[in-house]
Design a protein around this nucleic acid. Structure first.
Lengths: 271, 271
DNA sequence: CTAATAGTGTCTATTAGACAATATCCG
DNA sequence: CGGATATTGTCTAATAGACACTATTAG
């Protein structure tokens, strides 16, 4: 019996681990592992949903837009890494990990021309909306407006603050277009039982805000859709939201006061 | 301007990549990246759904059950790795990647006591059902019967061929219990619009087989559930399945012949 | 024919979606 | 009061689920 076999099969678990640390293990080649973050926030001034993109300062994909992201560190899990990297690259602080979902790992060979890199994509429903500040890797960092798809065949696209259009299939670095598309799909298909995306609206929101927000992900929430149906579905049936007694007086020009909703604290995340 | 800055910002993309390859890049510490595979198959002899588990031959988690899996290689994506490792460890060959889903990355620190390891979990809807053969890392490798949860509060559990019970929270190595739970949840929540899991049934299947299969993931498909409702939902409305004219004559003892269904080839995967 | 099994049609409850009617506020 | 805005109630269509009834086959 080899020493190896002895420790793997005969020794106790703790003896094995003691021995294992002393071994110079034959190293497999390892990939770099990064995280990327598809960050949504709602700009109340302009009354629209925005996505946080970086403009790359350096090769590869110099001058293309990209998602904030970076390397994962030992002793942190992917979500922590996504929080940390988002802050380092954009100065945007994510308060809670339950504003984040993992979308999945993207591992297509050669997705990064520099070498073997796997990314774990996340999405974040940020609140409050804050101005970003570009870190080292970016020449710029900005909230881009999302132009929602008008029907099922179309894709959303984006517009920078100086009105430049960003198309998913042309203007993004790496496979970030695919990551963004997967994120939109995932949010849409979970809207039937989950509304975490509403976290971008902050602690309270109205049914009309929800409708407007959901429209970015699913064209069925269009002009003809009655916001009261959101109440029926998400408040009465699913009980994801609850009415909070308050009613705003006069932030609007006139009209019946809005009802405010918040997340129902009894609900848990499920994605 | 440093050389670094020149190549990152002034040179062309291909000049940059040429230069990059010659550099001895400061290495970040990298994790090992593995894949794991939650493999389902339907055993027609015993008329039940089974899950493929390995019994670990070596520390850590010696003698615990684990999912087939292993290291991802350069120049392959995660799904290819999952196919390759499944074959190496269990001799089970997965024919097509559209029998597989990615479940997600699991990256909790110290999930592997030997060191920093991130896994990308997959699930596979295998067909045909074949006998496995344990590879090196396993003392055994077997199809375990799945005992479905009877209501929403319960978890499924498993039974080995010699009737030993495997509980998710006690008998599995690493975080594989969590991976399996996440997989069951994911399949269940996508059953409203997707039925890829039916790929375990092979090219054709009956509505009763579908009902029995779905019950493993959602207790609503219980004895009182009428299989004709599956036809209404998945054939008529979603058009995921189609009737294939054939009707089996006499594989059953008596009774009206079954209608056979297959996947509708116009449909694409969407998860 | 009878037992066994599968499929059909129908009925009810729930859910989704649209729209008319009503409520509230501002000036 | 009248215009603006929001919510409520109701109506219809779509969907989910249950169950009685009918169809087919073996023996």
């Amino acid at each position: 019996m080899t020493e190896n076999q002895y420790y793997e099969q005969e020794a106790t678990a703790s003896e094995f681990l003691e021995w294992y640390k002393t071994q110079d293990i034959k190293k497999y080649e390892k990939p770099s592992v990064t995280i990327d973050n598809v960050i949504f926030a709602f700009d109340k001034k302009e009354n629209q949903l925005k996505l946080l993109l970086i403009k790359r300062a350096a090769h590869p994909f110099k001058d293309k837009y990209a998602l904030p992201g970076g390397f994962i560190n030992p002793n942190e899990d992917a979500k922590e890494a996504a929080k940390r990297e988002t802050f380092e690259e954009t100065n945007v602080k994510i308060e809670s990990e339950n504003q984040m979902w993992q979308i999945g790992a993207f591992s297509t060979p050669f997705r990064d021309p520099r070498g073997w890199t796997i990314t774990i994509a996340h999405t974040t429903f940020l609140y409050p909306f804050v101005d970003p500040k570009a870190g080292d890797d970016a020449s710029a960092c900005e909230w881009v407006s999302i132009i929602p798809a008008e029907n099922k065949k179309q894709l959303p696209y984006f517009m920078t603050q100086d009105k430049k259009i960003i198309h998913l299939d042309q203007d993004l670095a790496f496979d970030h277009a695919q990551i963004i598309k997967t994120t939109f799909k995932r949010i849409k298909s979970s809207l039937t039982f989950n509304a975490d995306v509403a976290k971008v609206l902050g602690p309270t929101f109205t049914s009309n805000q929800l409708k407007k927000l959901f429209f970015y992900f699913d064209p069925k929430f269009n002009e003809t859709y009655n916001p009261s149906n959101i109440v029926t579905t998400y408040v009465k049936r699913l009980e994801i939201f609850q009415k909070v007694g308050q009613i705003t007086i006069n932030e609007q020009s006139s009209g019946r006061p809005k009802t405010l909703f918040s997340f129902n604290p009894e609900q848990e995340n499920n994605v």
